[in-house]
Design a protein around this nucleic acid. Sequence first.
DNA 1: AACAATTTTGTAATTATTACAAAAGAGTAA
DNA 2: TTACTCTTTTGTAATAATTACAAAATTGTT
Lengths: 139, 139
Amino acid sequence: MKSFKKMLVDKGISPSMQRIKILEYLSKNRIHPTADDVYRALVKEIPTLSKTTVYNTLKAFTNKGILTALSVFENEVRYEYEQQPHIHFKCLKCGRIYDINEKYDYLNDKYIAGHKVIEHHVNLKGICKNCLEKEKEDE
Amino acid sequence: MKSFKKMLVDKGISPSMQRIKILEYLSKNRIHPTADDVYRALVKEIPTLSKTTVYNTLKAFTNKGILTALSVFENEVRYEYEQQPHIHFKCLKCGRIYDINEKYDYLNDKYIAGHKVIEHHVNLKGICKNCLEKEKEDE
DNA sequence: AACAATTTTGTAATTATTACAAAAGAGTAA
DNA sequence: TTACTCTTTTGTAATAATTACAAAATTGTT
Ligand SMILES: [Mn+2]
Ligand SMILES: [Mn+2]
Ligand SMILES: [Zn+2]
Ligand SMILES: [Zn+2]
């Protein structure tokens, strides 16, 4: 597998230490983190890290197609490394966001009602398996 | 059709003038407005209207199932009166949000990967019909 | 009218994000 | 090495959406 440095160079982004660390974090932590999550995780290693750098870098990566930005509700953008389109499920109880890998008929790069579709997001909300089990135990 | 006042009473919400006007606005303006859109439209008629009232009312209506809240990206919540589930399409050029009424296999009230689905949102992004036509004209 | 409960209002606080300019770093020609 | 330029990072200030909260206004009831 390609190194993160090489991946950035291939996309025409100069591979600064901050950028490599941010990409590495997104790659290894598939938890759909917010910009603030990324900042809080990395500032431990890089004490001089600036939040502006995190915001700028995440936005730049997204524009280059390295990351995907999503808003599964709420007023904050979340990012993920995964590229394959997939469904997101947000638990209303514990707040976790799950990736769902069931088959799904996607519409990317097609037309619908005359509009050209470029991105396709399916966001579900409900009670996750874990929380359902906990509910049962409490009875 | 039921009056807005009756609709609120039926849901156990006392029908103040502000609440009726807000519900009426959402019902008659199917443009997925933000809280601020609602405020700016109604403050003309009700000069003393407070933004807090608008935020609180929209949230209360949503909890009662009178409105649906959606975030088709960006950092602001939008509301709509429509209850039937449908697809949303956001134009990356003009920013408009369109309702798509194509048939669609919804998952509401089902289980997926063990999780209980309560809400189902399909959000597309791309270039709308209108903007595509404008692009052609400009060539 | 007097009182209690509800609703609205206005302002302050919070949070996510962006703007912007100074500081730091990297690369390169003399 | 130094001088210069270009890029990136940093830190702070500004915006924008939303929420907290308490005072003021309204409504309904004795
Ligand atoms: Mn995902
Ligand atoms: Mn809609
Ligand atoms: Zn859960
Ligand atoms: Zn458009």
